[in-house]
């Protein structure tokens, strides 16, 4: 197998790293079902792909002849573009479909939509959908691979993986770190995937948000829960801020963005509570002055653009692995 890997990496003109396993899942539906070894394998693969993105010619022929459909039921710029670029840099044909509304509102069921797409023989469907469990639903019914680009409040695996890659790059290792995640925990799929991912990789996870945004039983997923930002970020190695959805203002969850920013925004000199070399992360898009003060958003501790850069590499890795990984060479 080592010989095959060597051949692959020579073929891709990649640095050969010590990769001692093979991992070719049919789907990527969430982090929950992955082992630490599998996560590390994805991250190692992503690390190898990262170099392609800085080449003069940013394209390798790995997925030539493969068709990838990005089926997005929710607005997304970053994730969809990132998946699209990832596919294109691997020479796949990528097609974007923006659908809107639930199946009920559309008058066509999700299954029918998906089967229509399947009839065009894509190899991979990358889906974002507002219903938790919708990617599992798709995977249960289709023959092609499904990659979850965010399902409701459930999981957003590629985000957690790019977060892990970014933390690993900055901190060397994830085991033993303390990661504080602050914001609307209840509605965040990013949080759930990150809790799974960080726990599997040996980090300690802390959560903070107003009581209205902390779902019952979240501590059972393996995290400490705080009612204030200060206690959560004290001596943390990583502070991850979540986007606060302005439309939640006035709903029962928060009285105003103004009050939210005061108590749960990362601003002023709050970062002094974290470790000196702590990094600040955000899945984007950021609300300046709400969850993130401008001085911090533009400060030296933030690694937000590294996350975006790593997003492409992680998604290349996922597309590559669900397509068969090194087995592609046998085709």
């Amino acid at each position: 197998m080592t010989v095959i890997l060597l051949r692959l990496f020579i073929y891709l003109e990649l640095d050969v790293e010590a990769i001692s396993m093979s991992f070719n899942p049919k789907h990527i539906l969430g982090i929950e079902s992955l082992t630490a070894e599998e996560i590390n394998f994805i991250l190692d693969t992503a690390q190898s792909f990262k170099e392609i993105n800085t080449r003069q010619i940013k394209k390798v022929p790995t997925l030539r002849g493969k068709t990838i459909i990005n089926l997005f039921y929710e607005a997304s710029t970053r994730t969809r573009t990132s998946f699209e670029i990832a596919g294109k840099r691997l020479s796949a044909d990528t097609v974007n479909i923006s659908a809107s509304g639930s199946s009920v509102a559309k008058g066509e069921t999700l299954e029918d939509t998906a089967k229509n797409i399947q009839a065009m023989h894509p190899d991979i469907i990358v889906m974002r959908h507002n219903a938790s469990g919708s990617c599992q639903y798709l995977a249960d019914r289709l023959d092609c691979s499904v990659i979850n680009a965010g399902d409701g409040m459930h999981e957003h695996p590629s985000q957690a993986l790019l977060d892990a890659l970014t933390i690993r790059e900055h901190k060397g290792s994830i085991a033993g770190l303390t990661v504080a995640i602050v914001g609307d925990i209840t509605h965040s799929r990013v949080v759930r995937s990150n809790i799974y991912c960080l726990n599997k990789l040996g980090a300690r996870v802390r959560l903070a948000g107003p009581g209205t945004m902390l779902p019952p039983g979240i501590e059972k997923m393996g995290c400490e829960v705080f009612n204030n930002l200060e206690d959560a970020i004290r001596n943390a190695d990583v502070v991850m801020m979540l986007r606060i959805q302005r439309e939640r203002q006035g709903a029962p969850l928060i009285p105003s963005v103004r009050e939210y920013a005061r108590f749960f925004g990362l601003n002023g000199n709050k970062m002094e509570l974290a470790k000196k070399d702590a990094i600040v992360m955000h899945p984007g898009p950021i609300n300046r002055g709400v969850e993130l003060g401008t001085a911090i958003a533009d400060g030296s501790q933030n690694v937000i653009l590294d996350q975006v850069e790593n997003g492409v590499a992680v998604r290349m890795a996922l597309l590559y692995l669900v397509s068969g990984g090194e087995k592609l060479k046998g085709e």
Binding site: D151, H154, R189, R192, P215, P216, I218, K220
Partner: peptide, 15 residues
């Protein structure tokens, strides 16, 4: 049902 399972699955719970 509201509780740890709903929280994990990302489904809104009924208390």
């Amino acid at each position: 049902n509201e509780g740890p399972v709903a929280t994990e699955l990302g489904l809104k719970g009924i208390p």
